[in-house]
Write a protein that binds this DNA or RNA. Structure first.
Lengths: 168, 168
DNA sequence: TTAAACTTTCAATAATTATTGAAAATAAAA
DNA sequence: TTTTATTTTCAATAATTATTGAAAGTTTAA
């Protein structure tokens, strides 16, 4: 396989995986493109490479910056903006974990905490089942939360070293 | 908050979380409904509870069985089918992990393995960057894969005991 | 058999989500 | 200033994904 073809396949695969996990396909593709590009790119170049409109490119790049995955670079003497993606995979994983935790896990834990407090008659099977499910899911969510918390602070080698040793 | 209201909120929250993670909202809601219901329910009852059509209920239930989260029960002497969800949260987490791994992670690893093999000129920055990114992501994906593999075999208390102790 | 009770399918439609493109806004240069 | 380069916004539109509902299929009972 030739490099150019491989690049396209990588961008496709990344886009597909993203969309299966609730991340906008274009966003995943732009990220993929920047990941395999040594230099930073302009909006124009990204539009061209992926055949997307200026509006789409602009919004997607802003989203990626909001996720902390891409940063803007200004070159002295140049007017246009360049975009660059951090290539450190561990940073990327951490950043994604951090954002999804904040955006999705934390709100759900808040609701589960509320729902855990709901009182009812413990002879009522409907209440018992509700309460048990909510409590158990809440506990699981909190364990995930704690683990992510630790992961966010950890160094990659230490993290995988520990995990894979424990689970060997 | 009253139990009935709490149930609705739970179903809503579960549906929202599901859709943010690429799982059909209705599927997550049907699952949530079955999770908090002590008995098994008929298609009719599910349609009614969630105000969805027969076709939608039918397909969603089949999907949930495909994910291994819901099972069909046949009651002696009765013609209609009843649906029941496993209430064990750890089983649910494992089952979801197992399916997503099979459906999404494994195919991606396969592609990354292919792309890792692509050869090129190591003086070419485009090639170097491509190769490094693919290799690093591949490694990360494989670590996740191994960890899931272990999780699938593990008992809940042992798993969290180990993880939270290591990361304390 | 035939009918009744139920389940499945799937084309049509609706709802949601993503994308475009052109106008408005901004910022530097002339 | 005014012009030019660039970015941003957002209503309109397109693409995708989910849902309906009624017809066809299946299974058991009469």
């Amino acid at each position: 396989m030739k490099l150019e073809e491989a690049k396209l396949q990588f961008i496709q695969a990344w886009g597909k995986l993203g969309s299966e996990w609730g991340i906008n396909r274009t966003m995943a593709q732009v990220h993929a493109l920047l990941l395999i590009t040594p230099e930073s790119l302009t909006t124009e170049e990204i539009m061209e490479s992926l055949s997307i409109s200026r509006g789409n490119a602009n919004m997607t790049l802003r989203d990626l910056m909001g996720w902390g995955l891409v940063e803007k670079q200004l070159k002295p003497g140049e007017r246009k903006e360049y975009f660059y993606a951090d290539k450190n995979t561990w940073n990327i994983a951490r950043q994604v974990a951090k954002e999804r935790r904040k955006r999705e896990l934390d709100p759900v834990i808040k609701i589960l905490d509320e729902l855990s407090k709901v009182e009812g008659n413990s002879n009522d099977p409907a209440y018992k089942t509700f309460h048990k499910s909510v409590k158990d899911i809440n506990k699981l969510a909190k364990n995930v939360d704690k683990t992510l918390e630790t992961m966010l602070k950890a160094e990659e080698s230490w993290f995988w070293g520990s995990v894979l040793k424990v689970f060997k």
